[in-house]
């Protein structure tokens, strides 16, 4: 049934066709039931759990020979995880790869949503470590499944309320729970809550793969994704008090980069492609290296 890649000896996209069919069926049900976690028989992949085995399996199942793949890890195209996964698919599926968000048809991501707006026809594949938003509140799968079946999400509201009681504000800053299409509460994977608004009414299809936990879920394009909050404590994203030191961008998510042992640091775009593109357009930051004053 399968045609092996002459160079690697593996089927197109590494997975065998039977596995792809199983994953594809899970993806179709996930799309039909937005935010619901579909169990699937995740395979061992040639990388350890925690390195994106769920995302890789979803990508392998949807990828075709005309796709253009981008892989990011915390917004960056050039960290180990992103480079390895991109090379993995360039080798086993011989697909075109890119670092440019706008050129990609499939974007696999670990913990960020690109700054450039996504468009119709793109697929964003998230690597998910723990798909169950209620897991740290209720460890039993049999119970969380019932809670989802009954749409009983009081526990999550209590958790957010306890944040307010203790800290004066909702202190959850990443993997911030969302309600999808008015029904299922979903874990957006450990993206900073800064990215949550981008999930709402997003023109791209969003697929989530959790390899170790063996779950796939989805948010179809143009779907209402609401971050949980309270009337008197509305959802707010992080803000930064300075622009990117390299490209001067404001309103983007910044990484803190340590520069030396003396406390020197700079804040730069976490989305490397976005930053490079802005610099190519002539935008320049202050270069702003800060030194600590002891």
């Amino acid at each position: 049934m399968t045609t092996a890649n002459p160079e690697t000896g593996y089927n197109f996209g590494y997975l065998d066709e039977g596995t792809k069919r199983m994953i594809r069926r899970a993806i179709l049900k996930a799309i039909a039931i937005p935010g619901y976690q579909v169990p699937f028989a995740a395979r061992e992949m040639p990388m350890p759990y925690g390195w994106g085995t769920g995302g890789v399996q979803v990508t392998a199942a949807i990828l075709g020979k005309h796709d253009v793949l981008k892989v990011i890890d915390q917004g960056s195209d050039d960290t180990t995880n992103a480079v390895s996964i991109r090379a993995f698919f360039a080798r086993t599926a011989d697909v075109a790869v890119t670092t440019r968000t706008r050129d990609a048809t499939v974007i696999q991501t670990r913990h960020r949503i690109p700054e450039a707006p996504l468009r119709d026809g793109q697929v964003l594949v998230y690597q998910v470590p723990i798909p169950e938003p209620l897991r740290f509140l209720e460890p039993r799968e049999t119970e969380t499944r019932q809670l989802h079946a009954l749409a009983e999400y009081g526990l999550m509201h209590v958790k957010l309320y306890e944040d307010i009681a203790r800290h004066g504000h909702i202190a959850t800053t990443y993997a911030y729970p969302v309600e999808v299409a008015g029904r299922y509460v979903m874990d957006p994977s450990p993206t900073p809550k800064f990215d949550n608004p981008k999930m709402d009414d997003c023109p791209a299809l969003q697929l989530f793969g959790a390899g170790r936990e063996k779950r796939i879920y989805a948010v179809p394009p143009h779907t209402r994704v609401k971050s949980l909050d309270f009337e008197d404590h509305p959802f707010r994203v992080q803000t930064f008090d300075r622009p990117c030191a390299l490209c001067g961008a404001e309103g983007v998510y910044l990484d803190e980069v340590l520069l030396d042992d003396a406390g020197g640091r700079m804040f730069v775009c976490s989305d490397t492609d976005h930053c490079e593109e802005r610099r190519a357009e002539g935008h320049l930051g202050t270069g702003g290296m800060e030194t600590a004053h002891a």
Partner: peptide, 20 residues
């Protein structure tokens, strides 16, 4: 005729139809 790519093409059409 091409089991790998024909199946992928059909699946993507179904996926896009269900997603939209």
């Amino acid at each position: 005729a091409d089991p790998v790519h024909d199946a992928q093409g059909v699946f993507r059409a179904v996926m896009d139809a269900l997603a939209r």
